[in-house]
Design a protein around this nucleic acid. Sequence first.
DNA 1: CTGTTAGCGCTTTCAC
DNA 2: GTGAAAGCGCTAACAG
Lengths: 358, 358
Amino acid sequence: MSLREIANHAKVSTATVSRVINGIPTVNRNLAKRVWKAVGERGYSANSQARCVVSGKSRLFGLVISDMRDPFFPEIVQSFEAAAIEFGCETLVTSTLHDPKRMELSVRRMVERRIEGAAVLTFGSEEVIIENLRAQEIAAVFVDVEPRRSKAGVVQIDYKRGTRHAVQHLAALRHERIGYVGGPAHSKTALAKRSAFEECMHEISLDVSSELMVAGDDTVEGGMRALTLFARLQDRPTAIVCSTDMAAVGVMKRAHELGMAVPQELSVIGFDDIPLAGFVTPPLTTVIVPKAELARLAFRALICELNPARDEIYQPQKYLLNTDLVLRRSTALACLRRSGLTDLQSLVSNSHTGETVT
Amino acid sequence: MSLREIANHAKVSTATVSRVINGIPTVNRNLAKRVWKAVGERGYSANSQARCVVSGKSRLFGLVISDMRDPFFPEIVQSFEAAAIEFGCETLVTSTLHDPKRMELSVRRMVERRIEGAAVLTFGSEEVIIENLRAQEIAAVFVDVEPRRSKAGVVQIDYKRGTRHAVQHLAALRHERIGYVGGPAHSKTALAKRSAFEECMHEISLDVSSELMVAGDDTVEGGMRALTLFARLQDRPTAIVCSTDMAAVGVMKRAHELGMAVPQELSVIGFDDIPLAGFVTPPLTTVIVPKAELARLAFRALICELNPARDEIYQPQKYLLNTDLVLRRSTALACLRRSGLTDLQSLVSNSHTGETVT
DNA sequence: CTGTTAGCGCTTTCAC
DNA sequence: GTGAAAGCGCTAACAG
């Protein structure tokens, strides 16, 4: 099942078979027909490994994520793969699990397979990856982090915009004491989201007292712990913005355990819009990160890094990904306890209908 | 950055470099040291593509799933990749999305990359995959389906065992009218699960009237539709077994909308134990399918197909994967409305504590 | 133990 | 337009 075999059976040279297979138009119609016939009969399929050796292009791309099991990623992986397929490329996915050893191994494996470039979506703990990728001078696209080097684009997510919608939505519902559950302190992504929140609060002159800012870890358990903290406060928040949906789910779960009704007594907003967000009770109002678009953008950016526009001094490309709020049922009018009204006020029904604003 | 370059710098032949890189022990210590030094200085990394061409082994495996976004798969993908890494192999993942066109393309792509074998986990709609894989005589391991051909192992999931636990658990809670929400009618997996349910019911002489058997589609929406049907019944079931957690989530969601309390008025059991199952309200009692083990098993089975024991006539290997029930909070004592007791009885609290039986 | 050499399956000049 | 031949980076005989 090699080129040679097909050549023999079609009574042509290997060069001709190669040309036919690759659709080079300067081949005699008859010869081409004979070749295709032989290919069909023998069930021949080109060996891309061999092709890669001679062409020097592997048509292979790496996709580095932190954890497949994080519901944020599956759609991204799917869409990245789809984008790659469109370009006739294959994807090598790997999870770092935040483990430096694994990261190093991942990069080494990808380098040995001669990937042409890699997209890195680890959301905080990518130092080792960046280091190794740079050492090998592999084209890369990072999400969120901005590594100053050549052949490295960056896709940034517009945390500000979505967060602003979230904060203003809460303000419109008369919330003033708004708590924030952030991600791990060391993560740049978490920092960026938190800054966005603070700025959006300042924009409309709302307080961000430090007792209302807690650092979580983007897990359900972290969200639960965060709400436990808030619940102990003298003056509790009436609404909570979370840096991830997982944290928001945890917040809601703990609220349920403590008998705090969401959204009547506590409004909750998440971030990411993972599928789970639509299934919890009540369905979670959250900030959409367009994951399919993110993946497509990352792949295209990679392609662009690889084929830089001629006649221009290289400059790492930068992309900004839009975000938006989707209204579901986890937010409602503030219960206004602080204004001296009784808890009965908390029965005020949700003011909106759960339509999607996208 | 080729072997030759390293050879020049270390003043040895390419053969020696190759031997050193591959850890062949019959090499002079000094030469080896020189080679490793050059390798380190130049940052050399072997080109596996070239290796594959000469060795004929790609160390690449395919993993065919139906949809990355189905929460059943991420852990499997992760664990399969981990198993492959242990063997120094790489994984090419692809989603069929139940689309024959995509399946054919997937197989073709994998064949061109010269995968050594593939694991197929599409749970019903694998005909095209099987056909294409067989045509190329690629070693394969299937989950659930049993394609009679050589070089094809099969991993079966013990649906019976987990389902029996589920049914008997419900029976112990005095449930007698138990509904079943199955998967798509055309799916072999769905059929196997359904048969398991029916047999388990018969084992303990419980009725499976046809009005209590509905075919869903393993989605939340399907589960919702199923409960709508059940709710219309004169004599409603007091408990429902679902063929997947997603369906169970839908059942619970619709129950919530209809004001039926789970578990007080309706007990629900799922299947798969996807992460979501632990996060819904109430947490879902479900049948565990050990996904990490499934992935490891599938990979090892693949390896075994590739290195068949000598001196034995080939026989496709068959593996059985255990299942078990995990008790959470979606089941409770039957409300016994049929016995003439009032609805107040439905407030009887859940009889167990949510411990995990694994 | 080491180097020379052939060749894996393919693409790509370069003559014809 | 087509084929002969060189060569991609590597491994594996084989000779020494």
